[in-house]
Structures are given as C-alpha cells and as structure tokens.
C-alpha cells in the first residue's frame, strides 16, 4: 500500500476541503478501496474518512426517502420503511457480499465500488485500459465469465459488481452530490457510464465530488418488487446476472413496471426497452419473453459469457412471474 495521509471529515464542507488536493479519495467502509490500495490498483495520496457524515433515513416532501450516504448497508437493508416500501432494495443489499462486509460498507461507497475484472485487479501481470488507460484489454480474449454482454466497448468489457445499485436503478433513485460548485442532484441511472474509449472513468462525478445522499422517489407499486441474483455458489459470490424488478398488474395487464439488470454491463442496466414493451400489455409469459428478448437484442457475447443472454432472459421472466404475472 502506497503511503497516504489520513483525515476524518467532521461534516460535508470539511470533507470537500480535505479532499481538495489531487489524488485524494473519500473513504467509506473501505471494503473495496482498501483492497484496491493493497493491490496497488488504487494509490491515493490522501484519504478522507467520510463515515462520520450523514447516515440518517428521513422522509422527503414528495413522499420518498432520503438516505445519508454514510449509512451502512446493513442499516439500510433492515430499515423498516425500506423493507415495507422498497423490498427490492433490501433484497438486493442482502444478496450482496457477507454480513460483515454489509456492516462496514456505506451506501455512498457501494455506489462507487469498482469492477471485479481479474485483469483490472492484476496490476503487475495484466493489461487493462480501466487501470492503465491505453495499455489494452486482456479480458477481451481472456476469462470473461463475469463480463459484459451489453454496452461494452473494444476498450473495456468490465461489469459493475454492486447488487444494491441494480435495485437503485430500477427504483429510479436520485443521487445527491456536493461538489466544488455546490450541491446538485442527478438521476441514479446517469451516475455510472458506459466504457466507450475512456473506461478509466466509472462515473460522471468530477474529482472532489462527494455523494451525500440517495433519494428514493415515491413509487407505491415498489411494494411488489423483487431481486433475484444468480451466482456460482449459494451465497457470498458476485452475480453472474441479477434482476431487480417492480411490477404493477391490473386486470391481467401491466400498468407499470421497473426492471434493471446486474452483472451484464459497465453500469447497472436499466431495461427501458423491456419496460416499454411490457407497459400496457398483457402480464403473461409470452409478453415477458418478448420483452426480455427485445432488451437483449443487441447483446454481444464474449468467449465465456454467451450463456448470460439466455440466463438473464430466463431470470427476468421468472422474477416477473413471481411478482404476479401469469407465466404461460
């Protein structure tokens, strides 16, 4: 681990001030950043501990919830309002990592965790455009079981590994950010980006920007929501694919639906095409299959991950079926 300075932020302004210099990084639970620093993938010159900032859950005027970014994952998953009104979010968090890690990890940190691509992690032995821009991508023709089938580029085929983020994408969350220019918000689905030619940039945040809170908009039909994660062992493994969905059915027809996929792209994949195909149509198996097929129409498999195309389709159909659609 490269030497660094350590400071603890008393409040948001303090955090921004402390992180103003170059090569600064905010430190939450450390469950990803400390590991990356040990692997010399991340080499910040100073760490600003933001775990002392807001960790409350409070109602918003619009009827949603505002979640302090320093809240621990466990606390968010077990919060009564989240369990009751946004079960997909509790479920997604509980499907991720282990209890110990969820006890440490913060909400803000979870949003910014980096890919698990083996070539990204191997700072000494592999080429990776995300870690060392322009060096090449060894994953393209290498081990790619955990890699992207949607939205990838020749420069990068990595996936974003968070479970929680898949639920946030489905719920249409809003990210509250404090930056040099003041406070702003952005739709969660615009936080992460596709790799293109600059895979070293995971999100649209500028250096020094601090995520202060996540806002869940009111979404009454999210009480009927679910998260299904498919992985290589029963627990404590990253997703091969995952599906977060919320479904509102009225008289056998889809009144509204929200869908997002994990494990398939450089960002949590909001399945807008599938949603559009379903909305207003019959809530039945053929419709679900058709919607899944439409969403995956542009999928591009790599050497090891072609199975994900079929897997994510099947998982989506199963989740929608469980949420109250009739599966024919």
């Amino acid at each position: 681990m490269t030497p660094f300075r350590f400071a603890r932020a008393a409040d948001t302004a303090d955090a921004l001030r402390l992180a103003a210099g170059p090569a600064s990084a905010y430190l939450g639970g450390g469950t990803n950043l400390v590991d990356l620093m040990r692997e010399t993938v991340a080499t910040p010159g100073s760490l600003v501990d933001v775990t002392g900032l807001s960790n409350t859950v409070s109602p918003t005027e619009s009827g949603g919830l505002l979640i302090g970014a320093a809240l621990r994952n466990t606390a968010l998953a077990e919060h009564p309002a989240v369990r009751a009104r946004y079960p997909v979010l509790s479920r997604a968090i509980l499907a991720g990592a282990s209890a110990q890690i969820r006890n440490m990890a913060t909400v803000g940190g979870n949003l910014l965790q980096r890919t698990r691509c083996a070539y990204f992690y191997d700072a000494e032995g592999a080429r990776c455009n995300k870690r060392a821009p322009g060096s090449g991508c060894d994953a393209l023709e290498g081990f790619s079981r955990y890699h992207a089938i949607l939205g990838a580029s020749p420069a990068c085929v990595a996936t974003q590994p968070s479970d929680m983020c898949v639920a946030l994408a489905a719920l249409g969350a809003i990210v509250h950010v404090q930056g040099a220019g003041g406070a702003r918000t952005l739709p969660f689905t615009e936080l992460h980006r596709l790799p293109g030619d600059t895979p070293e940039i995971d999100t649209v945040l500028a250096p020094g920007d601090l995520i202060t809170a996540i806002e869940l908009p009111p979404l009454p039909f999210a009480t009927n929501s679910a998260y299904r994660k498919v992985r290589d062992r029963a627990s404590y493994a990253f997703a091969l694919v995952s599906v977060a969905a919320a479904l509102e059915v009225e008289d056998g027809r889809v009144r509204d639906v929200r869908i997002a996929f994990g494990g398939v792209a450089h960002k949590p994949w909001r399945a807008l095409t599938a949603e559009a195909a379903l909305r207003g149509g019959p809530a039945d198996g053929p419709a679900f299959h058709a919607a899944a097929a439409a969403e995956l129409a542009d999928a591009q498999p790599l050497r090891d991950n072609g199975f994900k195309i079929e897997l994510v389709k099947r998982t989506l159909v199963a989740v929608l079926g469980d949420l109250g659609g009739a599966v024919a």
Binding site: F6, G30, T31, V34, D35, R38, L47, A99, Q100, I101
Partner: peptide, 22 residues
C-alpha cells in the same frame, strides 16, 4: 482481501472484517 471471514472481530458489538479496516 475481505473474502474469507477469518479476521472477523466485533466493533461496538457488530461483526466486521478487520483486514479491510484501517
């Protein structure tokens, strides 16, 4: 690496991984 749990300790009664904790 935060992947095995052998380093689990209790901090204020909560279990965490001490290897990922500075």
């Amino acid at each position: 690496q935060g992947a095995c749990g052998a380093c689990t300790v209790l901090v204020d009664g909560e279990r965490i991984l001490s290897c990922l904790a500075l």
